[in-house]
Every structure is written in structure tokens, then in C-alpha cells.
Amino acid sequence: MCLEHLTRTWLPPTRPLLIECESDSAAGRQWMMMSLEHLTCGWLRQLLIVLLKLCLAFAGPLRSLNGTECAAKGPASYILVFTGHWSPQAFPKQYPLFRPPAQWSKLIAVSHNRHFRLWEEGATASTGVQIFAELGLTVELMKEAKDARKGRAVGAMYRTAGIPNGIGHSSTELLMQPRSSLLSLMVKMIPSPDWFVGVDSINLCEGNQWKQEVTIDLRPYDAGTDSGFTFSSPNFPSSPQENITKITSQMPNHPANSFYYPRLKELPPMASLRITRQSGSPDRQTSMSNHILPNSISPQRFSVTPLDCEVSLWSSWGLCLGPCSRGGVRHRTRYILLRPANAGTPCPELEEQAECVPHSCMKLQ
């Protein structure tokens, strides 16, 4: 439809134009008379077409983090298996044995697109992430995901039961859609100030194909909301709040840190993920949420972590016992802070003696 009424409103009165055109006929050149009104109407039509194309481009399918769009034709069903490897052999320092013993919280997973982040290394933790990392409560974190789902940034949310030991399995079924092919998840370490393991925005779609299997080793993160150094540290809020950071064998660089293993280049994996695509139609498969698959899981073997003995500083020298001139001795002691494990450096001597000096003599009665 020509928008002549718009051109009459917006443009001044028109006058005829002569436009020279070259025809395909044997007659050769032809002259045409066209009004500026009709020419303007054609330009407006082209402008509307361009604007329509731009609108469709911006309203098109969302692109994933790596800049490629998931072009899979349909959904894909996966089984996600979380395996904890938090053992006293791999992590002997201050390993929690009671009140409470080492264990894992519920797993919370979210499928989403590039407009949502459950958590992000180097960024500040949201309120939901803070509550989950400190207390293991999922209500606020799930609320944040539900709010994002209203804007179509989140596809689905999943939870699994917790694991009562440091070593164990939990699993759930995932139904991934092309419009939300990214997956993020978190699991809190219990006990800990605000430590967790997880993944941020892994893409299960590659081009027009869903990936068949993804395996990932997981290492601990600090949510930056609590300043505790050890598994059993009391609640001590970080002020100001810090960013989410990865915990390494030397960061935080403090001997009191439960993950401080200066002899290691990197920490062993605390847990691992295996995400396996199921064959067949997702609509006809039986739900396997929170179903443990013991026969299909082969336990991973990691080398044990050597733990060196740690001792206190020496006490002050005691008074000299015995003759002040010759034969008298004085003593000092220290005690064990951390016993060695897994062929770590043994403890040194805990008592030392030296010859008396005259000003510290004490005559025996």
C-alpha cells in the first residue's frame, strides 16, 4: 500500500520530474514522466522494509555466550550425575569428621540463555547466591530464577537431594531446549563459611547438534560474603562484600586456610559432573530425577594429598635447673598444630634443652 497521504502531510507540494530510463526493447531509449510524490512514496516503502528487517533481526533467537546460536531442531534429554570426591585422603587438612561431618547440600541447576547468570566468577554474589552459599537454602535462589523465567531468560530449574557424606552421588534428568541451551549449577560444601562448587553457563549445544556427553572436574569457590578461613569458622560477614573467587592450594595465602596446601600446584577435584544425553524421544522417557545410577558410575581415583606436620612456635626458655656453673640445663617446648597424613613431613622435636647461663640459674634446695 502506498503511503501517499503521509507524503502529502510531511512533504511540500510536488512537481513533475523527468526520469530517463533505458528499456530492453528495440525502441531504445524512452522518456518517462514521474511525479516526486510517487518517488517519495517508493522511498518510504523501502524505508519501512528496512526498519521491519531490523526489528525482526533484534527480535530473533538469542545467541549464546560464545556468539553462536543453538540451531538444534528440538529438545534433548540428559542425565546429570554429581559425584563428590571430598575425602580425608584427598583433603586431609582439618577434614570435618563431626558436628557436622563433611557433606554436600542440595544441587540446584538452571537452564537458561545468555541473559541470565546464576553466578559468575569475579562478580558479586546475589542475595540468593549468598544465602545458598552460607546456609544451603534454595528459596531465594529459586525465586531469582523464576523471576528471570518470566522474561524468558530461564528455561527450567532442577534440584537434587543432598549427599550426607563427602563421597557420594546424586543425579537428575534435564530437558534442554534450543532457546535455553546453557546450564549453570551450584552445590554448597557443608560445613563451610560460604564455599561451593559449580559450573557457570556451559553450553550443551554446538551448532545444530546437542553434545552427547560432558564431564567436568569441580573445585571450590568462595562466594565472598563470609571471611572465615576454615570449614568450621563462625559467621563473620565480609564488609564490604567481595567478589566470587576460586579457592586454590595457595589462595587465600594463609596457613590457617583449610585448603592451604603449598606443596600442590592445584587442588584435587572436590567433585565431578557427568552429563550424558539419553537416546530416543525426550517425551517418551521416564523421569529419573534424583535417581542414583550405581552400576553406571565407576569411582574416580585421585592421588592422595600429603599433609605436612605443623607445630607451634617455641615457648620461652624455662629457669635453669642444676648447678649454675656447669651441668645445669634449661628447657623449652612446642606443640603439634596439625598432625601429618598421607606420607607428609613428620613432626619435628617438641622439646629442646640448652646449657644454663648464670642469670637464669635456680639453686636446688
Results as ranks from 00 to 15, higher is better:
M186G: 02
I49M: 08
L52E: 12
A26E: 12
L267V: 11
S170R: 03
S303Y: 13
E310V: 10
I247R: 02
R219H: 15
R15F: 15
C2E: 10
A161I: 07
R334Q: 07
F116G: 00
R149S: 14
W86P: 02
V311H: 03
I49V: 13
Y158L: 02
A133I: 07
L185K: 00
S279F: 14
K211A: 12
Q130V: 12
S312C: 06
P61Y: 05
D308Y: 04
A26S: 15
G280C: 07
D200K: 06
I247T: 03
H291N: 06
F132N: 01
N165T: 09
L218W: 04
D200N: 03
E266D: 15
F132L: 12
T14M: 00
R117A: 02
I292R: 04
A343L: 15
A90D: 10
A343T: 15
E355C: 06
I275V: 15
K265V: 13
W10V: 04
V357F: 12
P88K: 00
R334A: 08
T83V: 09
R274I: 09
P100G: 11
P252K: 01
R339K: 09
R15I: 11
I216D: 01
S25L: 14
M189L: 12
S287Q: 08
H169F: 12
S77K: 03
M1E: 10
S279C: 11
P191S: 01
L39A: 08
G128T: 05
L44Q: 04
S111N: 05
L107S: 01
R277N: 05
G67V: 09
R63G: 04
H5T: 11
P306L: 05
L39Y: 14
Q212T: 14
Q130Y: 10
H115K: 05
E242C: 11
G327P: 05
P101F: 06
H5W: 11
C347Y: 08
L350M: 09
S281K: 07
T172Q: 03
G74C: 05
G166Q: 03
P252D: 04
T160Y: 05
V81R: 01
F98H: 02
Q278G: 04
S238N: 06
A90N: 15
L17V: 09
S201G: 10
P13Q: 00
L18N: 14
N235W: 12
P268F: 03
C347L: 06
S238R: 05
Q285Y: 13
G168M: 04
